[in-house]
């Protein structure tokens, strides 16, 4: 007598066989199938990737940390991909192949997530334009005059170095020019190692280590120029960054 073969499973349960065990897993599989079907077929669902990308764009706009545009290249590229594919998903209403819709949606969502992660990386470790927050101008200084530049740092802007570009100009443009013979030296490094370079001329840039925990950064400088020269020192660019 031939033993009875076990009954074959119902066709609708095949999809869950590899991972599912029990009634709850079958229910989860059904929900996922319903969601996927809705995402691929429902008319309203085609707007979903675009809404997600736009929402992420609005949130990044409210928390924009500024700094040089070059650090946003990856973010910009991913946003372009996210918006482009999301827009295509909206426009492609009745595709011949359902895989086109699935691919557009997937790429858009992944690009949105990638853009968000790239933005968070810039916000946490990227360069921050601090030009408007630091002492902007010290006018009418003579040889040996000290000056202190003060920068208030918000908790979210903690970085371990400050790149500082200064303009050293004649106070009186009608007087003999002293610009080529004037320089500014760092009196003492505010934190840790030495700044590079130790002194700069007009248009030069310091890279100064700063305490990332400090909420107020003080940069002490000294002007060196010829006898009788009166100079204005202006901060043209200040950028917080991680060394």
């Amino acid at each position: 007598m031939t033993p009875r073969r076990p009954p074959r499973p119902e066709p609708e349960h095949l999809h869950n066989e590899a991972t599912a065990t029990g009634d709850h897993s079958i229910a989860a599989g059904n929900i996922r199938n319903v969601v996927i079907r809705w995402a691929l077929q429902h008319p309203s669902a085609r707007w979903l990737p675009l809404l997600l990308a736009c929402a992420a764009l609005v949130v990044t706009g409210t928390a924009w940390p500024d700094g040089p545009a070059s650090q946003y290249v990856l973010w910009g590229a991913l946003v372009a991909v996210a918006l482009g594919t999301a827009a295509a998903r909206v426009l492609v209403q009745r595709p011949r192949d359902a895989r086109i819709v699935a691919t557009l949606s997937l790429v858009s969502v992944l690009a949105t997530v990638g853009a968000w992660l790239a933005f968070r990386d810039v916000a946490t470790h990227g360069e921050i334009d601090a030009t408007g927050k630091i002492t902007s101008k010290a006018p009418d200084l003579v040889d040996g005059a000290p000056l202190t530049l003060t920068l208030r740092v918000s908790p979210g802007e903690a970085r371990d170095a400050l790149r500082l570009t200064l303009a050293i100009d004649d106070h009186d443009p009608t007087a003999p020019t002293c610009r080529p013979v004037s320089s500014v030296a760092l009196t003492s490094p505010p934190y840790g190692g030495a700044a590079t370079p130790a002194a700069i001329h007009d248009g030069g840039t310091f890279d100064i280590p700063v305490d990332p925990q400090a909420r107020t950064v003080r940069i002490d400088l000294t002007l060196h120029t010829d006898h009788g020269c009166r100079m204005d020192i202006t901060t043209t660019e200040a950028t917080l960054h991680n060394a």
Partner: peptide, 8 residues
């Protein structure tokens, strides 16, 4: 007597 900066 040296007034002001050097003239060039």
């Amino acid at each position: 007597i040296d007034i002001d900066s050097t003239n060039r």
